[in-house]
């Protein structure tokens, strides 16, 4: 039985989530439903929930503001949101779970299953750290990113990632310190996440950080040499776009 607190400023959202959780049987016990940050803060410290359903947009403030005010994050976190691209991106970077409203019953069950299976409060804290890091340094192109691996998560600075190479459903991430991280996500997952951070998919199997490009040798598609010495083939169809990105004024 998981102890849960729901934070949402709209009653019908609370009602719907409550309905869905109750319909699921006796796996989740809803201990409180809060509409404001102050109330939520009080309830959290009092009730010590296992899982917090947190709406991103709470009137004029956000769910992140609530998290910022909590000293000890000893609960799992599931964000709920309707449509907020910025927040979604932040969740993806920090690998935090989120549910999109109107919440799909199947999605909710999956999220709860994850909470039950991989309860790891330390990691959740780290993910929230990443979230805050990215939130604060909105202008900094180097963001932290929580990379899901086989055994959990690794936090990496996007500014340290040189390139990512696809390997079926996995992705090898090569970083500046000559480290290699194997992520349990497809290259597409990372492409979507990182494309606005100066990363570019030069090839079906390669996503590179353009900040680490040493030179580009023309050819049919050509080759990119990165600062660590690796040569990456450029797909013919990506060549034009790549040149545009490397030398926007030419």
């Amino acid at each position: 039985m998981l102890k849960a607190i729901i934070v949402d400023d709209e009653q019908h959202c609370i009602d719907r989530l409550t309905d869905l959780l109750e319909y699921n049987g006796h796996e989740v016990e809803i201990m409180a439903c809060c509409k404001t940050i102050s109330e939520a803060k009080k309830q959290i410290s009092m009730l010590q929930p296992d899982v917090l359903f947190l709406d991103v947009q709470l009137g004029n403030v956000t769910g992140f503001d609530l998290l910022a005010q909590i000293d000890r994050l000893d609960f799992e976190l599931i964000f709920t949101t309707s449509y907020d691209r910025y927040a979604l991106k932040a969740f993806k970077f920090s690998a935090l779970d989120y549910l999109l409203k109107p919440i799909d019953r199947m999605d909710l069950m999956e999220a709860l299953k994850k909470v039950r299976d991989n309860r790891n409060l330390k990691e959740t804290a780290k993910k929230i750290d990443v979230l805050f890091h990215n939130f604060k340094d909105g202008a900094d192109p180097s963001k932290r990113v929580a990379i899901p691996t086989m055994d959990g998560f690794t936090m990496v600075d996007t500014g340290d990632v040189i390139r990512l190479q696809s390997d079926g459903n996995y992705t090898h991430i090569h970083t500046n310190g000559n480290k290699k991280i194997t992520a349990s996500r497809t290259l597409k997952y990372f492409e979507e996440m990182l494309e606005s951070n100066n990363f570019f998919r030069v090839h079906k199997s390669h996503l590179i950080n353009l900040s680490f490009v040493d030179n580009y040798a023309k050819g049919k598609g050509g080759y990119i040499t990165l600062t660590d010495g690796t040569k990456i083939e450029v797909a013919v169809r990506r060549k034009e776009e790549l040149i545009k990105r490397l030398a926007p004024n030419s």
């Binding site: 109107p102 919440i103 799909d104």
Partner: peptide
């Protein structure tokens, strides 16, 4: 239906 419609709408958007 509505949940699926929301998903589809989001995807279309």
């Amino acid at each position: 239906y509505l949940v699926k419609f929301a998903k589809l709408t989001r995807a279309i958007l």
